[in-house]
Design a binder for these strands. Sequence first.
DNA 1: TGCCCATAGTTGACAGTGTAAAGTTTGCTG
DNA 2: CAGCAAACTTTACACTGTCAACTATGGGCA
Lengths: 199, 199
Amino acid sequence: MTPKKPHHHGNLQEALIDAGLALLAESGQAGLTLRKTAARAGVSHSAPAHHFDGLRGLLNAIAKRGFEMLLDYLRNVEHQNGNHDQPDPFKRLMVRVHAYLDFCDRNEPLFRLMFTEASYDDPELQKIALNCYQVLRDSCRPFTEGRNALEVEHAVWTMAHGFAVLGMNSPRPNAPAPNPPCEDMMRMLLLGPSNDTPD
Amino acid sequence: MTPKKPHHHGNLQEALIDAGLALLAESGQAGLTLRKTAARAGVSHSAPAHHFDGLRGLLNAIAKRGFEMLLDYLRNVEHQNGNHDQPDPFKRLMVRVHAYLDFCDRNEPLFRLMFTEASYDDPELQKIALNCYQVLRDSCRPFTEGRNALEVEHAVWTMAHGFAVLGMNSPRPNAPAPNPPCEDMMRMLLLGPSNDTPD
DNA sequence: TGCCCATAGTTGACAGTGTAAAGTTTGCTG
DNA sequence: CAGCAAACTTTACACTGTCAACTATGGGCA
């Protein structure tokens, strides 16, 4: 008799978030509906109202879960195959950036929800999103010596996010599609214009 | 009796786009509705079907108009107060970048529609968006000598867009909010790490 | 001139959406 | 064991996009 289990369903809150994530991955943002989410969780269409503040609340909760997944991904990517004990600080940073872009590619509708639909007034969401940013900040430290640290971190974060967003739906065709993506741009930013590859 | 005037309304197509832009500016994306747009243009809720392919078609047309506005803004910002004959190439570029960010700030719902809702399969939209990108490319020319031009342009575009998007709804509080925004980051990117302001 | 009909617009209907109110079940508490 | 609050259901409503059927207008062609 755990006190966590509510009366009927047994943690419907999390079940709804799971259902929403599944719908989002399957049919995109258009397929994520309060009623469909409820149906998928096996409850009536009005049940979510007792756990979230309407559709907005559900989307916010899903976004929060998304940031938790992203944080987990960013933190654990270091200890995965091929990324063990990377000594080069730039390569260590790029492992993080690539993880960020990977997450965006693999969860595009969720990523879009997290960054354009969620309301950042929620302090909980703000906190978990800040934790994600902190991982990137830590990877930037080797490049902030003698410079405005905030500015360097800001630039890296801006470029990584811009790359992710433009990669999703860029209006500009003939993108160079660098492989590995974004790396040359980051090199130019952090190591100076003399270090970028001439054509 | 100009042949451009259709039978009843007189260019309802453009009137619907105007109405949609007004709704978008007034009440955001949630307020932009096919029925409301039709009502604002003074026609029945089903009239737009004869001019656009459903809601998607209307949104696409509005996005197209948005890119036209952006292109106009980017091209004419040079000849405005305080921007006459800027000799410094970096400052000339920044005039363009600031125009880009200004447009985003002043038309946030439209900007979001242009970059996340419109379908870039439309070749017309692709073309006009490419024209916008071309203006930025031109401003990048002074910085592409002896470098991979595509890469430099890509980096500038990525950073500008990333900055615009994060400025709209950044999950990271305590943003440095540089004034003028984005300039120091761009300086770091284009002029090298030794040229950015130390703390 | 006068008919004809494609174009433009209207009306009505339908499935699906979010939300709110009222009713029902459940399981804990006094 | 009574009662009650939380969890869930049912019902209803306004609104959305889309479709089919209907009406009216005005230009082309006999």
